[in-house]
């Protein structure tokens, strides 16, 4: 069946009004029926309307594919583009910049029945979204370990300012291992067995390059407290309460080296 979108209105001059024209054209572009076209087109123009329709759909869906390459690899191209077509209709893009397209895609995937059979997919999407946000976040010099010279005696009182490009994603699934194994440039890593465990991804952007760091349970607990504004001492106590064997020294060194902070304060009990 050919669907004609009836919405053309005539104004006083007999010309189609802008509102009617754009509305009918836009509606037909996003219609589920691939043969839909705005009323008034002759047969040839109606057929060629598909060129615009394809351009619009491809433009949005390729932007989503560029933002979620690992999700696309894990679910396969055919399924990915089918979901992308649903997504572009359910959550319309508002900005003409597609640099940050796909904000709600992880939640959209979590609501999809077919995706539910592979329960880690929405968490992979959250990690990819965090990566994209980190890529485009505001610039700020990252704090260096050397910036802490002279603070050795009051380390436990320090609180950190979080670098704008820092994100943390925790999952019940091995999201960092899965993410790494499915990078386009690490095909051989697919052979590496994926551990069955919860993983936390710390995403930072030192020297303008986004990187993902794997944090185990204790490191994740410690880092999440620092991100929330707790002092080193408070974060350490929290992590220790969850895991009596928590070894803070190497974790603290890794977090500092990751570029996740852009400064520090002495906290409220600084002395």
């Amino acid at each position: 069946m050919i669907a004609r979108i009836q919405n053309r209105q005539e104004d006083d001059t007999g010309e189609a009004s802008d509102a009617g024209f754009h509305q009918a054209f836009a509606t037909a572009l996003m219609d589920e029926d691939p043969a839909a076209f705005p009323a008034g087109l002759d047969e040839r123009a109606a057929r060629r309307f598909a060129i615009y329709r394809n351009n619009v759909h491809r433009g949005l869906q390729e932007a989503l594919a560029a933002a979620y390459p690992v999700v696309k690899t894990l679910v396969g191209e055919r399924f990915f583009y089918a979901v992308a077509a649903d997504y572009m209709r359910s959550e319309p893009q508002r900005s003409p910049s597609l640099a940050l397209y796909g904000r709600g895609f992880a939640a959209f995937l979590a609501d999809n029945d077919a995706v539910a059979r592979v329960p880690y997919i929405p968490d992979i999407a959250r990690a990819e979204r965090a990566w994209l946000e980190a890529l485009h976040e505001a610039d700020a010099p990252a704090m260096m370990v050397t910036d802490l010279a002279g603070q050795e005696d009051r380390l436990i009182s320090l609180c950190f300012r979080v670098h704008p490009a820092t994100r943390m994603v925790s999952s019940n699934f091995p999201i960092v291992s899965l993410w790494r194994a499915n990078q386009a440039d690490r095909k051989q890593a697919r052979q590496v067995p994926i551990p069955d465990r919860a993983e936390t991804a710390l995403i930072t952007r030192p020297h303008f390059q986004v990187q993902m760091t794997l944090l185990d349970g204790g490191a994740g607990n410690f880092a999440s407290q620092l991100l929330a504004g707790a002092s080193v001492g408070e974060a350490f106590e929290y992590a220790l309460a969850q895991d009596a064997d928590f070894d803070v020294t190497p974790v603290f060194a890794r977090l500092l080296a990751s570029g996740m902070f852009c400064g520090f304060t002495l906290g409220d009990q600084g002395f």
């Binding site: 754009h22 509305q23 054209f25 619009v56 433009g59 893009q93 508002r94 597609l98």
Partner: peptide, 8 residues
């Protein structure tokens, strides 16, 4: 149109 970007 209608606040929605159509990418073409």
């Amino acid at each position: 149109h209608d606040g929605k970007y159509l990418a073409d």
